[in-house]
Write a protein that binds this DNA or RNA. Structure first.
Ligand code: ZN
Ligand code: ZN
Lengths: 558, 558
DNA sequence: TAATGGGTGCACT
DNA sequence: AAGTGCACCCATT
């Protein structure tokens, strides 16, 4: 079970071959790596950040978590908010439930010895029932010391939320639990938001989990109403240090292979981020869980919505998303097959998408079993004052220039609709109540930005020309790795094109899903305003003044 | 500065003489101690609890904290909620603000060496300005490891909130900081609740703090609108172990004398427990604090409300309260003087209330400098199942029977209005919004209890006869110490009389403050209902049925 | 059962 | 990797 290397080919093959050459160290010590080189980069540079980009233009802080849940639930990672702010949200792994006898050893979490991330069904034949593992031997990881973090920070300069995976190592196994309360709420919210495509995908995920089928990869389509960025990243984490209660780091590294691949098509949820599903405290008996499992299984078999999960229509939807910039290698390979593989190993091979060189890439990925130095030791030295500084954007089709395209924050036009600082339009002041009093409302801030509406076109003149170009080349993953100190400003035109494509294509894809809500690219007044704000240069004096004010007010608690 | 024994005489002298004889060990290992013997009891029996009784009939969980703040702010203890529930609230000391260089020694909190609770002005001539201590040498007690806890639990059986000081030791010095944000909110809430008498008292406290005057004792008058319990207790904590980060308990006991006396006249706040004062984050520069200090000093000198803090009218008020059952020994002795003493020692003597034997009692109290074994080590073995069993009430005039008057829970008529579990009446749903949906509101509960209105009189037939009796004899403290295993039921008539006196006399005192709100004792329908509820036997079958339902609903989260 | 005790999500500061 | 105030939880008895 440990040292499992059954990874589904989520990283395009062509990249892995030249992985080493693509990782470049810039002269200031920063590292620029392409998306397909993430596994190796993660293994070698733990103190680097995995930057998710682009991200939807979250209009509310509360939209971030559902979006991330779409990405990380299929990876067996249940995220919770560790701390949140008006300008940042720190996510972490949900703490493990304590087993009955919650006195595990301190130095090693009773080491289920594996922390095997990918194939959860291998280690626990009990399939996703948390109670099965529980009672006594479960790795309860006494204090939740998992170092995994996702940091979402709102850049006042760029007026955009930046999401960075700070630490991809886990002190526990990754396991998708379809019976967790949080997941239930999450899925209920998906339904409330009418994100039926995601609901279907998660139905499939639940089915696989309950059926002991491998869940190595996942697909979460994007269904947002306003934006439609495609977000995905792949991570291979070779070595996961077992949880040590930060007092004695005796075992240097147990060399336990841990693999973690994340793939999804994210989306900002269109609206209603306020209403959470009513909390329903449920009993957690084993019997109840078995009932749930059986019920769900029957429902899945009968439900027409889940019936066609593996039919041609679903596949066509995926292909359509592909053409619009969704990286194929991060789609769920299982959608291309109509049968379930019984063993994880076989399924891993069987679920390969029909991409050339996919298997080679997968094999390459299996070799990225590298040790991680303890990232915790290095984080203390991180200077967080630069957290809102520009960060790099890396595309696959520009991988030869990866070491140069950090910075460029000033021109990156990815749809950065400030979550709350942007909406100046006095007509849409309804969301103002969600923020503390005395904080500027998004409407006010946005109105301030309308003074330079023409910057949008000037910065991204060729926003429509390269859309098909990018999507057909290598399905850019839209992921970038960079460390803290990247400040170069280069290759801005390429970035501009890329992100403008996203903005333009997204509504079209959305329209295909809900024609009644159709809305041409940037045709909405609000949307156009947002784009204008995003694409304009942040070097504007007025902008900085506003930024400073907003920054100060953020800490005023109002 | 350390081993300060400048204690103001808060414990009546006559008691301390026979302190040892009054502490009795019952045959089941429990300890019954009179109020005036609290210092010694605390020093010798750390695993005992200090039970505050009676307490107001809190109608909302949110009313508990302000009430406790009135008691503990004058002691230099700023409480925060560690954890709260529908049925319990755990308070602790507010975490110390870290100085700039937050790397203090681990084993000893740079030991301002004193933890001298009473006279804060002695150690820090900078008078209550937190910045003065700060920056570097301040005992920031890196992780807030103060063991002090106050536990408020709602007993479903007795329909009453019970408040217990779980651990009276502190890992830090006790210092009243009039500039803390929380205190400002607290005081603003006092103003909102029109608790002007408390406002005045705290104005005085602030003045003393800013003027480097000793704040050994305090007075917080009762100003509640609905209830008028008199609450007070006195604690002398001889030895406070310095904070040790629970890893190495090297210094067994530093023998640092710590004295902590608490006195107040508590009251449940009349209404509006929902509206918190708007948070105003203030800059914390030293300059700003000095300005505040100067401004406050000037305002105090000029304000007519604070002008007469030390005039005869104020003293008459105190005397009036005395006659109504308020223990004189817990009143602020300084109100009896019109001049400020410069040194704590002299002021302690100068502020003695004109009571006979007061000085003797004070001297006796100074001798209670006993060491505390670390209470945390012993709390793990305490059996909490009996905590809500009848506890002993000790009056000064019945101190020879102290070991016998625990129990009698069924008849203790202290006003216990259930916070939210009781309301079944459908007419008075106005306060229902303050509680989670589906929870009963207190008003309904009160209406429900009207079915047995006559119980009030039957239980306390002599409620008016002994009022002067108690107040003139030795000013009962209304405090009881008891440990886990007290089960005797004795001297119930005495208890009944005592608490009924409190209930009846309180409104009269209140009326003296606001004649327009005058309300004779138990004349208010609601008030009478509350008394009826409290005095009736909880063994009623219907009551238990309601309890069950309420208990279940409490965990429905609805 | 009713009560005790603690974990932890997460936003305020 | 802000620390912590506070409450929604859960486990145990
Ligand atoms: Zn984790
Ligand atoms: Zn304390």
């Amino acid at each position: 079970m440990d040292s499992i290397s059954t990874s589904s080919g989520l990283v395009p093959d062509s990249m892995t071959e030249s992985a080493e050459s693509h990782s470049r160290q810039t002269n200031d010590g920063s590292l620029a790596i392409q998306a397909n080189e993430l596994p190796k980069a993660l293994a070698e540079d733990q103190n680097k950040f995995i930057h998710l980009d682009p991200v939807p233009d979250f209009r509310d802080k509360a939209e971030i978590k559902p979006w991330l849940q779409k990405i990380f639930y299929p990876q067996g990672i249940e995220i919770v908010i560790e701390r949140s702010d008006n300008i940042k949200v720190i996510f972490k792994c949900k703490a493990a439930k304590r087993g009955k006898n919650t006195k595990p050893r301190r130095n090693e979490v009773t080491t289920t010895s594996s922390m095997s991330a990918s194939s959860s069904s291998v280690t626990s034949p009990n399939t996703g029932l948390s109670s099965a593992a529980g009672k006594k031997k479960r790795s309860v990881s006494r204090f939740n010391t998992c170092p995994f973090r996702i940091r979402a920070t709102f850049s006042l300069k760029r007026r955009k939320w930046n999401i960075v995976v700070v630490n991809n190592s886990h002190s526990h196994e990754l396991k998708f639990d379809p019976d967790s309360d949080e997941y239930r709420k999450f899925k209920e919210k998906l339904r409330e938001d009418n994100d039926w495509d995601a609901v279907k995908q998660f139905d499939e995920l639940e089915y696989k989990s309950r059926s002991n089928l491998p869940i190595e990869s996942s697909l979460i389509p994007c269904e947002c109403g306003l934006t439609s960025e495609i977000e995905s990243f792949s991570i291979v984490l070779p070595s996961t240090k077992p949880a040590q209660n930060n007092n004695s780091t005796d075992s240097p590294s147990t060399n336990i292979t841990n693999r973690n691949s994340v793939s999804s098509i994210g989306s900002g949820i269109g609206s209603n981020s306020s209403g959470m599903a009513p909390v329903i405290s449920k009993p957690r008996s084993k019997k109840w869980q078995q009932q749930q499992q059986q019920r769900h299984r029957e429902k899945l078999m009968r439900n027409p919505s889940t019936e066609h999960l593996f039919t041609q229509s679903q596949l066509q939807l995926q292909l359509q998303q592909l053409q619009q910039g969704c990286p194929v290698e991060f789609l769920d390979p299982s959608i291309f097959t109509d049968s379930f593989a019984s063993s994880p190993a076989s399924s891993t091979m069987a679920t390969q998408p029909p991409q050339q060189q996919q298997q080679q890439q997968q094999q390459q990925q299996q070799q990225h079993s590298l040790q991680l130095t303890d990232p915790l030791t290095e984080f203390n030295e991180i200077d967080f004052t630069d957290i809102f500084k520009p960060h790099s954007i890396h595309l696959q089709d520009v991988h030869s220039n990866t070491q140069q395209d950090h910075g460029s924050d000033l021109l990156q036009p990815s749809q950065s609709s400030p979550p709350q600082f942007l909406d100046t339009n006095h007509e849409t002041a309804s969301r103002r109540d969600e923020f503390p009093p005395l904080l500027f409302s998004p409407l006010d801030a946005a109105a301030n930005e309308l003074m330079t509406p023409t910057d949008d076109m000037s910065v991204s003149p060729s926003h429509t020309s390269n859309s098909q170009n990018n999507s057909s080349q290598r399905w850019p993953t839209g992921i970038s790795i960079h460390d803290q100190h990247q400040h170069q400003h280069q290759h801005q035109p390429i970035l501009r094109q890329y992100f403008n494509d996203d903005e333009i294509l997204a509504p079209a894809r959305l329209a295909s899903l809900w024609p009644q809500q159709q809305e041409t690219s940037s045709s909405s007044p609000l949307r156009r305003v947002v784009n204008a704000v995003d694409s304009q240069s942040p070097c504007n004096e007025n902008d900085y003044a506003v930024d400073d004010l907003l920054w100060k007010m953020n800490f005023e608690n109002a």
